[in-house]
Simulated scan of single mutants.
Amino acid sequence: MNDDELHPIGHAARRSGLSVSAVRFYADAGIIEPTALSSAGHRMYDVHAIARLELVRTLRELDTDLDEIRRLLDGDTTLHDLLVTHLEIVERQERALRARRAVLRTLVKQGGTTARTDLMHKLVSMTDEEREQAVDDFWNDVGEGLDVPEGFVDRLRAQRPILSADPTAAQLEAWIELADLVASPTFRAEVRAYLRDTYSAPEARTLATEPFQEFMHVTGAPLMEELLAAHRSGESPGSPWAQRAVTRFLEAATALSATPLTPEVRNRMADGYRQVPDILRRIAEEDATSETPVYDDTHGRYATLVALINGTDQAHDPIPYTWIADAMSTDAPPRSQEVS
């Protein structure tokens, strides 16, 4: 197409992807005027005008209004600035649509009523400050007068949802469920009862103390991960790698109670790990028939939803308790023996 060649309105419309009536409209609105008029008074367009018509069509498809397009073509704004503005608008619309989808999916699952719809909308529209307050109110209520070691509830409180500025639909759905739960007096009472029943007993209080919790979640976690890495690499429990890792873990664990790491202590801890699978099975069976609050329905549900909201919900391989017990034992299998 020659830059100086003039084309009738029908050709300009076809080239730009617009209808003839749309080209006329943009000319009458002073957006893209014809380059010239033919001797018969017909509107004629050169290649530059047709290119501008193509741009107008694209911008209109992006819901850009005519005043913005006019400012762009008049040189009052740049294409880059216009596109940045519209990208922000589209992203806001996308977030709003995700929020609506989360509300609708939740309502479909739960059965929607007018009051329920209102509540779901309020939950996804909460500010960061309102979300923080909702979680604080929950833990204040759960922890009030709870007979557990000092600082335990504060450590649980530190695990809190942080909804990103651009959450996925799944994260929004998890937040809706969590916000609904933490506001529920029934859920609060069940979490409180679970924590009381689990950690108030004298034999379990040690598990809730700050040194033990710090070991489980901070200092001991990388030590256990090193041990699990040896297992994932196919090392036998008696290999040098596994033995270095398990010894570091046991030394840190026994230091909590200032207990020397003797062969008897190693074997006692090994026996404890061997019993874990049977204990977990028994707990699962009891939970299935229990009428009292259990972990998966109380604090466990809270933790799961927080992980979903924060994007930290990762699948974990089953813990190889028997392999760990063999590594702890003073009779650990030799390096050449494969233990699964």
Rank of each mutant, 00 (worst) to 15 (best):
M1G: 13
N2E: 13
H7K: 04
P8Y: 08
H11T: 14
H11I: 12
R14Q: 12
S19I: 00
F25Q: 10
F25Y: 15
D28W: 09
A29I: 09
I31D: 05
E33Y: 03
T35R: 03
L37H: 12
L37P: 08
S38Y: 06
S39C: 13
Y45D: 06
V47C: 06
H48Q: 13
A49V: 00
A51K: 11
L53G: 02
L53V: 05
E54M: 11
T58Y: 04
L59Y: 04
R60Y: 01
I69H: 10
R70M: 06
L72K: 02
D76T: 09
T77L: 01
V84W: 06
T85S: 12
H86L: 05
R95Y: 05
R98I: 05
A99M: 01
A99Y: 04
V103S: 11
A115N: 14
D118S: 14
S125E: 11
T127V: 00
D128Y: 09
E129C: 01
Q133W: 03
D136E: 15
D137V: 15
F138R: 01
F138E: 04
F138G: 04
G145Y: 12
L146S: 09
L146P: 09
D147I: 03
D147K: 11
V148C: 05
I162V: 15
I162N: 12
T168K: 00
T168V: 08
A169C: 14
E177P: 02
L178R: 03
A179K: 04
A179S: 05
V182D: 00
P185I: 09
T186W: 10
E190I: 06
E190Y: 04
V191F: 07
V191L: 08
A208K: 03
V218K: 13
V218N: 10
V218R: 14
L228Y: 12
A229E: 15
G234H: 00
S236T: 11
P237M: 01
G238E: 04
P240N: 05
W241N: 13
Q243C: 03
R244K: 14
A253N: 07
T254L: 07
A255N: 01
L256Y: 03
S257F: 01
A258R: 05
T262F: 05
E264H: 07
D271N: 12
G272M: 04
Q275N: 13
Q275W: 10
I279N: 15
I283N: 08
A284M: 13
A284Y: 08
E285G: 12
D287S: 09
T289C: 07
Y295M: 11
D296Q: 15
D297K: 13
T298G: 04
R301D: 03
A303S: 12
V306I: 09
A307Q: 10
N310A: 03
D317A: 15
P320G: 03
P320C: 00
D326W: 11
D331S: 09
A332S: 13
P333K: 00
R335L: 10
E338A: 15
E338S: 12
